[in-house]
Design a binder for these strands. Sequence first.
DNA 1: TTGAAAGCGCTAACAA
DNA 2: TTGTTAGCGCTTTCAA
Lengths: 328, 328
Amino acid sequence: MTNKSVKLEDVAKEAGVSKTTVSRVLNNRGYLSKQTVEKVHQAIEKLHYRPNVVARQLFRQSTHLVALIFPTVDDPFFAQLEAELEKRLAALRYGALMGNSQNNPEKERQYLKLLLNHQVDGLIVGAHNQGITEYQHTNLPIVSIERYMGNNIPIVTSDNYHGGELAVQRLLNDGCQHIIHTNYPSYQVSPNELRQQAYEDVLHRHGMKPITYQVSFDISEEAKKKVFRKMFREHPEVDGIFADNDTNASLIIRVGKEFNRHVPNDLKVVGFDGANITRMLSPELTTIQQPLPEMATKAIELLMAQIDGKPYQKTVKLPVRLINSTTA
Amino acid sequence: MTNKSVKLEDVAKEAGVSKTTVSRVLNNRGYLSKQTVEKVHQAIEKLHYRPNVVARQLFRQSTHLVALIFPTVDDPFFAQLEAELEKRLAALRYGALMGNSQNNPEKERQYLKLLLNHQVDGLIVGAHNQGITEYQHTNLPIVSIERYMGNNIPIVTSDNYHGGELAVQRLLNDGCQHIIHTNYPSYQVSPNELRQQAYEDVLHRHGMKPITYQVSFDISEEAKKKVFRKMFREHPEVDGIFADNDTNASLIIRVGKEFNRHVPNDLKVVGFDGANITRMLSPELTTIQQPLPEMATKAIELLMAQIDGKPYQKTVKLPVRLINSTTA
DNA sequence: TTGAAAGCGCTAACAA
DNA sequence: TTGTTAGCGCTTTCAA
């Protein structure tokens, strides 16, 4: 029914007016007699006309499209983040273009190209890759989430340092004596390093020796398990673990069982993220929850300020909270 | 650095050739002397030229954009499905536009409008809403996933009926005598009804009485729990549950504990979906796994066939498998 | 209050 | 092998 090839000109002919007039009706601009507006509306109805936004985009030099570049949507944290961002963008009538880099710098570079080619109006980036200088060279509005991307790119983070403190303090309160931290390698100053910093600071204050195991984000579940098995073998004394995210925490708990270490009696584990799905599927996990809805709100706010040429903050740090449950 | 306002004409001037020639170089079309190609490439480099895809889209009447309309990405099944789809689209150099309807028909309608306005080349729909006739009226290539949308719209499903059989059979093998099924209400013939059909058929064959509890997809966790509490109160004899998805299975297991029913001794539960995240966070769940990667592959295949005007199947049904774990 | 015409940046007949 | 020109569908200046 909706004839794709109906164009403004056809509506104009049908209504017996000029293209200009139809355009004015469409955009509600300029002086128009009630009668004309009426006629045009009728013609639009009759022909099932729908404006071609691409033509409009070409003229306006703006697509009302925002690209979301994240490692993957197949992870509770990023899935929720993208969902929250998308919801807010839709409310502002912006489309959300997905770009999941799989933590592969080459892919991320390709995405950036693909998405820039689609003339997006802005970029929200939460991918982990470093060393991609191309971002600096786009004059596009960008907001980064939990990732340092350069001095001039605003960043939204949660209070990672305090999160680290809360987690380690929780384990100490539980009486843990040998606390290990897992983290993913980061090649540049990155907010998640603050968790490790906090972990080390708190441990030092208590005269304990910090030990961190690096676990890449993009390796297989089995590969991660291997790292954790190594950890249990090398440190049989471990009685508390501060994991860098909830899925790793879950994995660690499982690997612990292989070593006959059961949570929370022989082992305490605190995770990080506290996304909806994780809370739903693993409510027993004690974790540090990041304020995902607020982070999304702030990110959109910063992006829109840039798009509208208004002033905006360079850094937004949002509070985390400890979710007390039964694994620690 | 990448000057947004550099256009084809500037490159032409810089290289001392016509716009056509530059366009030809860009698209690798027609006869070109090596020298010219070289000159043009140099000019492109020098000016940091990047083609404006919107202009190209206007001409070609194709955006290389595909819209994904799903209830939400904040759910393991849909998150993985969207991730798989997006990956395949990117490989074909198509952009993926997200549209998460939150299971709200009004929102879905708005999305459809927003996305159609963006002149997407195709639609992949897995939202649950019914009664949206607008889909029928777009002449756009559409593929539906696990949802009946009309005779002329191809659909990719997993073998829901066999999945239902497998699940119920598993519970029967465990010795369950009182098996309840949970499902979400569907307003039209929908593939998930086949699970219920299989459930009822198998139970009837064993002379048992089927009981199904309806749980809406879009209500809160607390609201769902209420339904399940009601279920345990009304049917204290229940010893086996075939849940319509894994998150509900997880919820049921938790609610069961409130009634002092512990899995798998006092209660067996089989879920449905078997998405990555669920397997990761709740590996103990016995479930029916849908072949998400294959479903995505097929969906893209059917969509691309439509876009390219090639013949395509109207229905694709893919096999499921039982994942044996410890909740049943 | 309305319309003619130019132009957004690109591509492709057609001509040379 | 290359260039001229019209046009994709829309918006807006400028003029009436």
